[in-house]
Design a protein around this nucleic acid. Structure first.
Lengths: 330, 330
DNA sequence: TGTCCTCGTGAAAAGCTTTTCTCAATTTAA
DNA sequence: TTAAATTGAGAAAAGCTTTTCACGAGGACA
């Protein structure tokens, strides 16, 4: 242990500079010396100290990642995508979870600053002014996943939620749904929940339906809130189709409908959002908008790399999505 | 950006040493100077360079984590537990996933060595001699989750799988199962799959059943392999109870039984292992041995901290488990 | 008043690597 | 054969922090 480049140099009978040249393949080294150094490296298992290297080069090959919660399989997939893409590019991942708490998020920005990460991939509920302040102070690339936020230093990776919700709603209508409702997510400005709501509205209005006649409920993305919302909606109006802003709430809604003996999809069609793994297995299986979180993670890393390489890069990167039809719709 | 401690010192009209003392609360600093330094720190948002600090202190406050796959919600929970406990102790997490590939695992050990992490939490299929070699070369604490491996430098955190499988089997028997079978996991030495198998066997033998009369199948922990195994078992023998070495295989088995119109639990009782989130939602819901992966992650970090604090620590830490009875058993 | 502590502070070293500069040696070109 | 160019390799600086050592000033005590 504790071997440093000087020790290796001594063992190989050369200077530290030469050892460095061999390790990094830079400059010219006589073949004989090179072989001697390589042999010593092999024997000792020496690995250069990334701290010293990072200090000197002003680069750590580490990216900081902030996600809300790993219990959500979607974010786990997202991190997996990040990790895999990072690995293929010689990057390491410093992972933190924020529980969507702004204070935590800000403190992680500072932690990352201390650790001198090369870039940050951020996924949280909402990018606030406080986030922006930190952004201003930092001079590393920021990639934000899941929301749009205008800023010269920022790259956003996101799904066109409005369009996706619009298409999903259109689909329900095309399958005969006349009395639609939506279980919305929290409606922060610029958030996915908001965009999904406006896509829904757009389709409704286009159909000539007065938005005032629509019964809406707001949930918090949990199964429980979906269950409650469905209950509340049905107490107020008879509907035959419902769009939920995510799969968990849609599953909660299905649970309520099943409990009440209401037939899915004959009496009520249900459409979710995200394509959680459970949605496929559940009975009845849930129709939904599939968003590929794994791919999203990869995209974020690619965006980061392109930024550091000074490649011209679109500040707003759109992710593909896919309408998946299962048993909860006709 | 690019401010260093010298700049701060200059701005505050003191020496770098004094700034360091203020930041770290070490040594004596005159109140007046302290206030001036604090003010400058506040204004500039200066954060000490963790690389330089780590280089000097020979400590990074980072732990390296290797897990097989984040798509498995259990491992996602495990990482979440690690991350949360690490956070509360001022540690950061460098995350890697190995897909259970030994070469990857070894290369991560080396990466962690380069990055000078303070410790490693490892969760993979099997701790081989190659792993041991790396362990010998390193001089940081290793925590291994999910298997037993004797080594003075190692701390193992694991469930008593043999006992748990024994209890689960006993339960099936107590509920009237007479013709039992098991869908085993891969039987590497010292692995969870192996221990679960031997627990099953122990209960069987204790019941006076000849192990030769038992029909066994080996799966690879996937849903598909559980489905196939159940098929193969039923083609060979009529059974009324089956223990699977994990939930995915148990769910596969249930799927086959449902497909064949066999009643669960009246004709066949099914018991899983791990308590995956899907097991609760599935229809019929799956009885299983619940292992708290989140808690397991926390335990690993605690074990690491106790090791670095030189606290006397048990080299083999047992995790609690819990028999969860749902609808797939009587 | 003189001696001993304590307090406060700065200079400097250590921790490890990469790169630039410099110089020597060897080869190529004229 | 001499000048020029190329190759190879070491010395030293830079990157940033913490801690030790040393020193001066001021207070306490005899």
């Amino acid at each position: 242990m504790g071997l440093n480049i000087k020790d290796i140099a001594k063992l190989a009978g050369v200077s530290p500079a030469t050892v460095s040249r061999v390790i990094n393949g830079t400059g010219n080294v006589a073949e004989e010396n090179k072989q001697r150094v390589l042999k010593v490296l092999e024997e000792t298992g020496y690995k250069p100290n990334a701290l010293a290297r990072g200090l000197l080069m002003n680069k750590t090959n580490v990216i900081g990642v902030i996600v809300p919660d790993l219990s959500n399989i979607n974010f786990a997939e997202f991190v997996k995508g990040i990790e895999n893409e990072a690995k293929s590019n010689g990057l390491s991942v410093l992972l933190t979870t924020s529980e969507n708490d702004t204070d935590s998020e800000i403190s992680y920005f500072q932690l990352f600053k201390e650790k001198r990460v090369d870039g940050i991939i951020f996924s949280g509920t909402i990018f606030t002014e406080r986030h922006r302040e930190e952004l201003e102070k930092a001079d590393i690339p920021f990639i934000v996943f899941g929301q749009w936020f205008e800023h010269p230093k920022l790259t956003c990776v996101n799904v066109d939620n409005e369009r996706a919700a619009y298409e999903a709603t259109k689909y329900l209508i095309s399958k005969g749904a006349k009395n639609l409702s939506m279980i919305m997510g929290p409606l922060w400005d610029r958030s996915a929940g908001y965009d999904r709501y406006s896509g829904f509205l757009k389709a409704i209005v286009e159909e000539g339906i007065n938005p005032k006649d629509i019964v809406l409920e707001e949930g918090d993305f949990s199964i429980k809130s979906g269950y409650k919302a469905m209950k509340s909606i049905l107490e107020r109006k008879k509907i035959d189709g419902v769009l939920a802003a995510n799969d968990f709430m849609a599953l909660g809604a299905i649970k309520y409908l099943v409990d009440k003996g209401i037939n899915i999809p004959d009496e009520v069609q249900v459409m979710g959002f995200d394509d959680n793994i459970i949605s496929e297995i559940y009975n009845p299986s849930l129709s939904t908008i599939k968003i590929d979180f794994y791919e999203a993670g990869k995209m974020c890393v690619k965006a980061f790399i392109d930024t550091t390489d000074n490649k011209p890069i679109d500040k707003n990167i759109l992710l593909p999505y896919q309408l998946i039809i299962r048993r909860s719709t006709k």
